[in-house]
Design a protein around this nucleic acid. Sequence first.
DNA 1: CTGTTAGCGCATTCAT
DNA 2: ATGAATGCGCTAACAG
Lengths: 326, 326
Amino acid sequence: MEDVAGLAGVSAMTVSRVLNAPEKVRPETRARVLAAVQELGYRPNFAARSLVTGRSGVLGVVSMDTTLYGPASTLYGIERAARQHDYLVSIASLQALTRRSIAEGVERLRSQSVDGVIIIAPHESAAEGLRHLPKDLPVVDVGGGEGVPVPVAAVDQASGAARATRHLLSLGHRTVWHLSGPANWIDASGRIRGWRSALEAEGCEIPEPLVGDWSAQSGYEHGRRMAHDPEITAVFAANDPMSLGLLRALREAGKRVPEDVSIVGFDDVPEAAYFWPPLTTVRQNFGEVGGQALQLLLDRIGGVEGDVRRMVEPELVVRESTAQRR
Amino acid sequence: MEDVAGLAGVSAMTVSRVLNAPEKVRPETRARVLAAVQELGYRPNFAARSLVTGRSGVLGVVSMDTTLYGPASTLYGIERAARQHDYLVSIASLQALTRRSIAEGVERLRSQSVDGVIIIAPHESAAEGLRHLPKDLPVVDVGGGEGVPVPVAAVDQASGAARATRHLLSLGHRTVWHLSGPANWIDASGRIRGWRSALEAEGCEIPEPLVGDWSAQSGYEHGRRMAHDPEITAVFAANDPMSLGLLRALREAGKRVPEDVSIVGFDDVPEAAYFWPPLTTVRQNFGEVGGQALQLLLDRIGGVEGDVRRMVEPELVVRESTAQRR
DNA sequence: CTGTTAGCGCATTCAT
DNA sequence: ATGAATGCGCTAACAG
């Protein structure tokens, strides 16, 4: 910076001003400095600035398995939004969602002095972890449940599940079975809630939910059993991979979809339109959730207080895996 | 830090040593310092350390669309490996893989003084971008082509494609058609190369490759056309989503897989085993690639010179979408 | 093994 | 509108 100042014939201070508050410097001086910056290829030292301002310009994201479609898309949304606000995003991925591992991930990020952290941890045990966070670090949760002590951005799972269920009911099905995710996942319980309330509202019988583990394999295994039950004419599966497994199991057992059984999934992964048959499913706008989470975090960093919940509405995408009950 | 030093009755320097080179401090002193650190909840200031050491402990990853299975998995592998070496990973995702956008991503990362950058950009235009990188920044490329001027970690695409092709040939098919990715993607051209050479080695006719865009939709569209040609009994598709589209198109047209047409994909996404029929495909170990890339980068940061290529062998996973020619 | 001195590159404060 | 002095928190180099 001294060099730049020298070349431009000003003091280091002026260079600093040009970079941080250009309007406080006379245009001609500014131009000279900028030219010098260009010529010398000067790059501000981030660590030094951070040392004196106390802010790093880096945000952290703690997440489990960023390989899954949901977390990956959310992360992508966060990163895109962060870029627009001139923030960089660092990631800490977790092996498990225990209170300890969450604390550890946050700690790792914090030791690099991130300005705030977004936690993607749609699991009950995460809520516990969120309660024991350092108070002096702005934190936002993505997909968190009700009792979470920090701002939350999430897709309205219950609403999406209700849409799916009502769609099936409107097709004349007596009731709707549910292949759910593991019970201690926030998303899973939200979807169960929405499904159940939609059935209740219509006075339908409420079957016991079948519990899968999100994988296509678990959908397949449950599907093999369901195929034997002629009562089952409509199934709402809690995500698209399970729907895929379900689809295959039913077909192998000689059931036709949607003629014999209608199926609705959840997520709308890019491939869902090319399942066989094309899958009716509930689309989650993860990018939007990521953007909302970032905004919430920026607010927090800016000193805005209070617990906020930003809910994003999911959307039912009707394709060919659902049909009128016969 | 002064406070810690005071409480432990030592100088600030000793505290610093305890944190960075514990073996250079007498155990009892060390214990006292550690206790003081605990009690005061002291956290080293990262920016200050970085300012004086010149290293930040942060690595950058530049990638396009971390939503796709390949990049997401690679990123995950990198992050996991980085954690073991006490590095944090920051990401810069790109909208497009032009020379400009790559330079911009690297620049964004560099302005936050990352110690090195890994570029996931399996696209030809990226090679151009890689040639114009700052010389003073350690860079490693994932999935890059031959002429790339930096160390590269990648799956051996040609080898995987050859395996897939030979598998089909060994099943008695006269030749193998290829549904490729866009020509300017490194992976796509590597797979074309491997497929072609395997056909040549057996003296088979080499059909013109059909060019898709990686999406299930493009697989579907090409599939509709291919279904009319009775000559086509074996297809090697350049990734799993295209295979999915292909599968559906063929079936809709009344062709059976694998009885009428055999299909091999590439990637082995988690759902591939639940396609209908379960997809024979080539598994890429992205985690391994990520780990290798990180190691390469660490070497570079450590001053190791030279262009290195670390190739990871893919593996053929035989399932039920391929069968003997009838 | 431990302490002292110095300075990393920048922004804040107070002058001019 | 610009400059000079000061210190952010830490570690490298040297001294003891």
